[in-house]
């Protein structure tokens, strides 16, 4: 574990806590894409299949349970909790996210490190996570102005994988044979998709306005 990866995990944890805070306390999911949340639930479900078979550390298992629990409970809140569901912007959140799942699955069947059930699903989760934010970014364009909590959520979610890239660079130079092209390229694509958002997000900080 290095400082970049720890910072990345804490940033990722902060993003789900911010979203849970928003949904649980003010009972609102305005500006949040349910489709992105559904994709993230699939990402964690397919990435952490080994949670019971391979033990890495208490920290690792704990964080996996947190991410699994939070992603599924956010989907539950947005779908079934009356007060929260009422604030869900169904008309605007229309990105055909199921069209992202199949290509990622096909790509994982073609490009992977090992052709085993767990490895292919794990690779699928990497590809899916890279594009999972798309419905949220499209919703963001449509709803124009968003509240600070949603803005923070997206910023933290985008930042965590950027910190992971620093972690991969660090591990590449400090650990022999640490090469994982698939993870690196998927992580880079994922982070680049936020470039546009980061630009407007920092403008907001400079300008002190809401995220236009």
């Amino acid at each position: 574990m290095n400082i970049f990866r720890l910072a990345g995990d804490m940033t990722h944890l902060a993003s789900v806590l911010v979203l849970l805070l928003k949904i649980h306390t003010i009972k609102s999911c305005a500006g949040v894409s349910l489709r992105t949340q559904e994709l993230y639930a699939i990402v964690f479900a397919t990435r952490y299949l080994d949670i019971f078979t391979s033990f890495v550390s208490v920290y690792n298992t704990f964080m996996k349970l947190v991410f699994l629990g939070s992603s599924f409970s956010i989907v539950w809140y947005m779908r079934y909790h009356k007060a929260v569901h009422r604030t869900y912007d169904r008309e605007q959140d229309t990105f055909r996210h199921w069209f992202l799942v199949l290509p990622c699955l096909v790509l994982a069947l073609l490009i992977h490190e090992k052709f085993t059930f767990l490895e292919v699903l794990w690779t699928f989760s990497l590809y899916l996570e890279a594009v999972a934010i798309l419905p949220q970014l499209v919703l963001l364009q449509r709803t124009r102005n968003i509240d600070n909590l949603t803005g923070q959520y997206i910023f933290l979610l985008g930042g965590y994988r950027g910190l992971y890239i620093l972690n991969w660079i660090y591990r590449y130079f400090t650990e022999p044979h640490f090469v994982h092209w698939i993870t690196w390229i998927a992580g880079l694509v994922q982070t680049l998709l936020y470039a546009d958002f980061f630009y407007y997000y920092f403008l907001r900080f400079i300008g002190g306005r809401g995220v236009e």
Binding site: R5, V56, S57, F67, Y164, N167
Partner: peptide, 10 residues
């Protein structure tokens, strides 16, 4: 067959 390193990242 070389043991693939366990996935220690989240």
């Amino acid at each position: 067959e070389e043991e693939t390193p366990t996935k220690d990242e989240l």
